[in-house]
């Protein structure tokens, strides 16, 4: 890339005029489809990659009736449904991407819903590859929820995404006995058995995510999303789910980027909130 070519086109209007000159159209070639915005595509191109095709994966798993209401320890079927729904949705988007000769999928939008009788995972993203590159062995194909912009920034810094790592655990919250509830009523006290239940769910979920990251030979998981807390439809169940993109350093060493500072002249949002006065 020469510096001259990189400079902003001095006459955009001329470029636009030329774009509609009859002789200029280069038809033919394979059509591509992508849900990336133009600036994201330009970002990808800046690192030598291009979009190939829009790809998706979906899975829904049923969980037994009455599963959430009573029990002890981990709610195994719920945890399995979550893990399998993720795994199947990922393998389907992976298969879609492999079929169009992609090297990876970026910007995967993840929708995940846990209902009392089923758990659903929907993935939609854009399959990408280095410009003009041929297909690779499908085992080397990555699926990542990083945006195209984050993907290119990571690549510039010398890192590469390896895939999505997920982990989840659902546990029953222990019930307090009537006696305990009464004596605790007026006290400040930590409810240690609940804290423990929460920790168990978290440890199992994090451990599962870390195991899947290690199995991809990753050295890190970035942009980890954490969804945790009580289930809305079952008062005595606690859920903890995490997912993120597994990365490893591909270059010899991390490449620093030395950012510069900018002051935005956009108006900041009004910070005053009348509701706080009531």
């Amino acid at each position: 890339m020469s510096d001259v070519a990189n400079d902003r086109s001095p006459d955009l209007a001329a470029v636009v005029r030329a774009a509609f000159a009859p002789s200029k159209s280069q038809k033919g070639g394979a059509s591509t489809t992508s849900d990336l915005s133009i600036d994201e595509e330009l970002n990808l191109h800046a690192i030598g990659w291009e979009p190939v095709e829009l790809v998706s994966g979906y899975s829904v798993f049923s969980t037994p009736v009455g599963l959430w209401s009573w029990g002890q320890g981990e709610i195994v079927a719920a945890t399995e449904a979550h893990a399998h729904a993720f795994a199947n949705a990922i393998s389907r988007i992976h298969r879609d991407a492999a079929a169009v000769g992609a090297h990876g999928v970026v910007g995967v939008a993840i929708e995940r819903s846990v209902y009392s009788t089923y758990t659903e995972v929907t993935l939609l993203g854009t399959a990408v590859r280095p410009i003009g590159a041929g297909a690779i062995n499908a085992s080397g194909l990555f699926v990542s929820d990083l945006s195209a912009r984050d993907f290119s920034r990571l690549m510039i810094a010398g890192w590469q995404p390896l895939g999505l790592a997920t982990g989840a655990s659902f546990v029953y919250a222990p019930r307090r006995t009537m006696g305990a509830a009464l004596t605790q009523q007026s006290q400040n006290i930590e409810l240690t058995n609940y804290t423990e239940a929460m920790y168990n769910a978290r440890e199992m979920a994090m451990e599962r995510m870390q195991q899947s990251a290690l199995s991809m030979n990753g050295t890190g998981v970035v942009e980890v999303k954490v969804v945790e807390g009580p289930m809305t439809f079952a008062s005595h169940a606690i859920g903890f789910a995490v997912w993120g993109t597994v990365v490893r350093l591909a270059a010899q060493s991390h490449r620093p980027m030395t950012p510069s500072m900018v002051v935005s002249l956009d108006d900041t949002r009004v910070a005053f909130d009348a509701a706080t006065l009531e």
Binding site: N200, M206, Q210, A213, T219, V221, E223, K225
Partner: peptide, 23 residues
């Protein structure tokens, strides 16, 4: 908890997890 210690040990062996964005 014990499980926490085990998980943290894994992290010491090179894997990191983080909820930071790429930026």
């Amino acid at each position: 908890p014990e499980a926490t210690e085990r998980r943290l040990e894994e992290l010491e062996h090179g894997l990191f997890t983080s909820d930071l964005s790429v930026n």
